Simulated assay, not measured.
Amino acid sequence: MLYPAAKSPLASTHCYASRHDALTTLQEREAAMAVTAKHENAALQTPSPMRIVRLPEVKALTGLSRPTVYERIRDGEFPRPVGLGGRTVGWVEGEVTAWIQGRIAIARGHDS
Score class of each variant (00 low, 15 high):
L2M: 04
Y3M: 10
Y3W: 10
P4W: 01
P4L: 01
A5K: 06
A5P: 00
A6I: 09
K7H: 03
K7V: 05
K7M: 03
S8P: 01
S8F: 01
P9L: 11
L10T: 03
S12E: 13
T13K: 09
T13S: 10
C15R: 11
C15A: 11
D21R: 04
D21A: 11
D21I: 03
D21G: 00
A22L: 11
L23M: 14
T25R: 06
L26K: 03
L26E: 11
L26V: 00
L26Y: 02
Q27W: 08
Q27G: 05
Q27N: 10
Q27D: 12
E28N: 15
E28M: 12
R29L: 10
R29S: 11
E30V: 12
A32R: 13
A32K: 13
M33G: 02
M33Y: 02
V35K: 15
T36Y: 07
T36G: 03
T36S: 13
A37T: 11
K38G: 09
K38Y: 14
K38T: 12
H39L: 14
E40S: 07
E40M: 09
A43Q: 14
L44E: 07
L44W: 08
L44G: 04
Q45T: 04
Q45D: 08
Q45P: 01
Q45I: 05
P47N: 03
S48Y: 03
P49S: 07
P49M: 08
R51F: 00
R51Q: 10
R51A: 13
R51P: 04
V53M: 00
R54F: 15
L55I: 14
P56H: 08
E57K: 00
L61Y: 09
T62A: 05
T62Y: 08
T62E: 07
T62V: 06
G63E: 08
L64N: 00
L64H: 04
L64I: 02
R66C: 03
P67L: 02
P67K: 02
T68C: 09
V69G: 00
Y70F: 13
E71L: 15
R74G: 04
R74Y: 02
D75W: 05
E77L: 13
F78M: 05
F78C: 06
F78T: 02
R80P: 04
R80K: 08
P81I: 06
V82I: 14
L84Q: 11
G85N: 01
G86L: 10
R87A: 13
V89C: 04
V89D: 02
G90A: 15
W91Y: 12
W91G: 08
W91D: 09
W91A: 06
W91H: 09
V92M: 12
E93T: 02
G94R: 06
E95L: 09
E95V: 06
V96P: 04
A98V: 09
A98L: 14
W99V: 04
Q101K: 15
A105C: 08
I106T: 05
I106R: 08
A107M: 13
A107D: 14
R108Q: 12
R108A: 13
G109W: 02
G109C: 04
D111S: 12
S112P: 05
S112H: 12
S112A: 12
